[in-house]
Every structure is written in structure tokens, then in C-alpha cells.
């Protein structure tokens, strides 16, 4: 019997170019997000020259007599209450904020991937240990924990703040990884790989992790924004970065009490934060689609 009864659903000629790069290249949003992130990266690396382009290269050159000026003139984004140039501050804050946001997320992702995958794939005892561990961390109030730990630390830098935020934020991500891995583990292609006698390491790297990464990446990209805000909360409470440091979070937390009288204090750092987070989220979505063969055209 021939297969003529079943309609041939698949096209007879494979589409010409279906590589990941070809799919990415064809999407305008990919370019928009990449350019936005590239500009932010350039700002982070070279804050001085870029701030200097608008005539205010020093964020710490403040003049109290120029307090809370509206945008315009010498100060493109206006000045804050201390009379410091907001543009220079936003530009200089990029480095710290991006650094904390990305480092924390990468740390969380690393811990969550390892523990979540072990818990989800092996189950049993490992699963129970990881589950209790995440329960403990989730049950602990983040602010209280962070305050205690940061007060205990002698020096506080962007790295230590990152480490502390990551220390308290990985459990949600780990749970997500675990449930995602569990779904993939029970699929027949993983069973087939196990039946084939493949080693666990290979099954995990080739089949389980790539197929469980989608939802995790989506959450991880949104995490960058919340981490940047979390840093501002800590700094506002006096346990985050020390006063001469400049970050978007710091500017946001000082600006929030003057929002009604001086909205421009809040607006400009917020725009930068939003652009960063939106670009990362969109890029994450596009990457996820491109990694999935079904999403490629």
C-alpha cells in the first residue's frame, strides 16, 4: 500500500535558508532592540565622552543655586534637587545599573539552572532538598534578609549588592526551571534517549535544557528590570550603594517623593530603565522564537 491516502502535509521543497541568523536578520524588531542595547552598552563603557557631548561631563559637579531646573539650556534633562545635571547622572548611572541588573540575573539563572535541573530531572531526594531550600528562601522576607546581610558586610560595591540580590532571588527561577524540566523529562523523546543508553549529561545538554529554556528565559529577561529597582530600594534604605555612587535606582528613589512638583526628576531615569527592560524582553522573545524551529519561517 502506498501512502497516497494520507495527504502530504509537508511541502516538498525545504525552505531555502532557515538558519537562526536568517530568521533574526529578517525581523526589524531584532535590529531595533539590538541597536538600543548597543547604545546602552556604549554609554556604560564610555560615560564621560557621551555625557560631555552635551557639555556636562561631570555628574558630581553640582550647583545648589541651580536646584531642580526644568529641562533645557545647558542642562538637557534639567537638574536635580542638589543642582546636579540629570543627563550626566543618567549616563553615569547606566554602568552601575546595567552591571547590577545583568550580573544578578546571570547569577540567578546559573544557580536556578543547576538546582532546578537536578531537582526536576532526578526527582526524589534531590527534588525534596531543593524544594525545601527554595521554600526557606521564599519564606524569608527579601528586604529583611538583604538588610541583615548587607549590614554585616564591611565593603559594599556593585558586586556585593548583586550577590545579595541574587542570593535572595534565585528560588522563583529555580522553581520555574524545575517544573519546566519535569515536563520535558516525561516526554517520549527523552525516554527514547534514555532507552538508547545515552548518558545523563548528554540527555540534559542536548534535549532537556534546550527544550525547557523558553519560559525560563522569558522570566529572566523581565528580572533585569526588577533587579535594577531592587537595588534602588536597598540604596534608598541606606544599605545598598554608598552615597557617591550613581545609579538609576538611586535617582528614582530620590525622585519619587518630588514627583508631583518636579516630574522630570523621575521621567528621565525611568525612560532609560524602560528602554533597557523592554529591549531585553523583546530580544528574549525574538531569540526564543528563533531557537524554536517552529517559529522559523
Amino acid at each position: 500500500m502506498s501512502e497516497q491516502l494520507a495527504p502530504q502535509q509537508a511541502p516538498l521543497v525545504a525552505p531555502a535558508d532557515r538558519s537562526m541568523w536568517a530568521t533574526l536578520r529578517a525581523r526589524p524588531l531584532f535590529w531595533i532592540c539590538s541597536v538600543a542595547l548597543a547604545i546602552l552598552a556604549a554609554i556604560a563603557i564610555l560615560p564621560g565622552p557621551i555625557a560631555g557631548m552635551f557639555g556636562q561631563p561631570d555628574p558630581r559637579a553640582c550647583d545648589l543655586s541651580q536646584s531642580a531646573l526644568e529641562p533645557g539650556g545647558a542642562h538637557v534633562f534639567g537638574t536635580d534637587l542638589q543642582g546636579c545635571d540629570i543627563f550626566a547622572n543618567v549616563i553615569y548611572g547606566t554602568q552601575t545599573s546595567l552591571f547590577i541588573g545583568l550580573l544578578t540575573t546571570i547569577l540567578c539563572l546559573a544557580i536556578a539552572m543547576v538546582l532546578g535541573t537536578i531537582a526536576g530531572y532526578y526527582g526524589g531526594f534531590a527534588d525534596r532538598v531543593v524544594a525545601r531550600l527554595t521554600d526557606v528562601f521564599l519564606g524569608f522576607p527579601f528586604l529583611l534578609g538583604a538588610i541583615v546581610v548587607l549590614n554585616g558586610l564591611g565593603t559594599r560595591s556593585a558586586v556585593t549588592v548583586s550577590l545579595v540580590i541574587a542570593f535572595f532571588s534565585w528560588p522563583t527561577l529555580a522553581r520555574l526551571v524545575r517544573s519546566s524540566v519535569r515536563t520535558v523529562r516525561s516526554t517520549e523523546y527523552v525516554q527514547a534517549a534514555q532507552a538508547m543508553g545515552l548518558r545523563d549529561r548528554r540527555i540534559l545538554l542536548d534535549h532537556v535544557i534546550p527544550n525547557s529554556l523558553g519560559p525560563v528565559l522569558a522570566i529572566a529577561t523581565t528580572m533585569v528590570g526588577s533587579v535594577i529597582v531592587a537595588e534602588s530600594t536597598l540604596t534608598f534604605l541606606g544599605v545598598g550603594l554608598r552615597a557617591p555612587s550613581i545609579s538609576w535606582g538611586l535617582q528614582l528613589s530620590t525622585a519619587q517623593s518630588y514627583f508631583q512638583s518636579e516630574p522630570h526628576l523621575l521621567v528621565f531615569p525611568s525612560i532609560f530603565l524602560t528602554v533597557t527592560v523592554l529591549s531585553l524582553i523583546t530580544l528574549g522573545d525574538i531569540l526564543r522564537d528563533a531557537l524554536d524551529p517552529k517559529g522559523r519561517s
Binding site: 517520549e188 523523546y189 527514547a192 542536548d206 534546550p210 527544550n211 524554536d292
Partner: peptide, 11 residues
């Protein structure tokens, strides 16, 4: 296996 859709890694 029974379900050929699930038996092949979609990626």
C-alpha cells in the same frame, strides 16, 4: 513509542 509527535525532539 505511540505518539510520534512527542517521540522526536522538536528542536
Amino acid at each position: 513509542f505511540q505518539n510520534p509527535t512527542a517521540a522526536l525532539d522538536p528542536r
